[in-house]
Design a protein around this nucleic acid. Sequence first.
DNA 1: CTAATTGCAAACGTTTTGCAGCGTT
DNA 2: AACGCTGCAAAACGTTTGCAATTAG
Lengths: 129, 129
Amino acid sequence: MRTSRQRQLILDLVRSRALNHPTAQDVHDAVRDHMPGVSLGTVYRNLHQLVETGEIMAVQSEGPVHYDWNREPHLHLHCRRCGSLVDVPLDLEATVREQGRALGHALEEIDIHVRGTCSRCLGSTNKPQ
Amino acid sequence: MRTSRQRQLILDLVRSRALNHPTAQDVHDAVRDHMPGVSLGTVYRNLHQLVETGEIMAVQSEGPVHYDWNREPHLHLHCRRCGSLVDVPLDLEATVREQGRALGHALEEIDIHVRGTCSRCLGSTNKPQ
DNA sequence: CTAATTGCAAACGTTTTGCAGCGTT
DNA sequence: AACGCTGCAAAACGTTTGCAATTAG
């Protein structure tokens, strides 16, 4: 894998935390602020490579895939009100892995989605984000 | 909600376990064996309604949504080799819910995906399903 | 009767891909 | 020079929707 200005920018943006669990489209918008010519196809191709090399994580809940710089074990609260994804630190891997072993499966990735309402939305009676 | 021959057939098929975590397309194929004229749109509309009323569950992993008759707490092993989904009985809801409460979130749905290789594929050196 | 449900086909949002040219090594 | 990467545009994919006709209560 060679280096490219596009891929480096994409990685920097996702890692910067300026974007909260961005979709490919979100990343594309942000990338174009710095490099206007970058195509959506390039963003998708690079996000895939970055997931493959473990630099970032892909999070699939409902609708488009979101990307996450956080490589620690955690799960995602998908807020039904504002649509945001919030990281919830919780390591269930050992528990799940043990159960898998008991059933003879080889587990590689554990991916947990939680849907509900985030604390920010619970604390307000206003319109969602 | 009225009854319709199409919806009843769809529910019976998903509940019959003849289909293993079928996608909408799988259900459509199976439905047409019994009622050739049924459209894919009708299958999608009915699967949504059945999820809404809690008769079946939707499972989102990678690619298309899969449907599951199993309403007990469990997680899904998505086999990377044969693509199958296998139920893994394990109730993590209490653990996850407690963590959510500590962070002030209101949790509604907990959805756990595990990717790896299922026992069936581990036990064979042959081509995937 | 009436309103939910249907088949059909077109449209949708997201993602992937073929291609010719460009950039890195 | 070789080959990975790019922008572009078209296509693929899974899903949703508008419509007029049909069907269940």
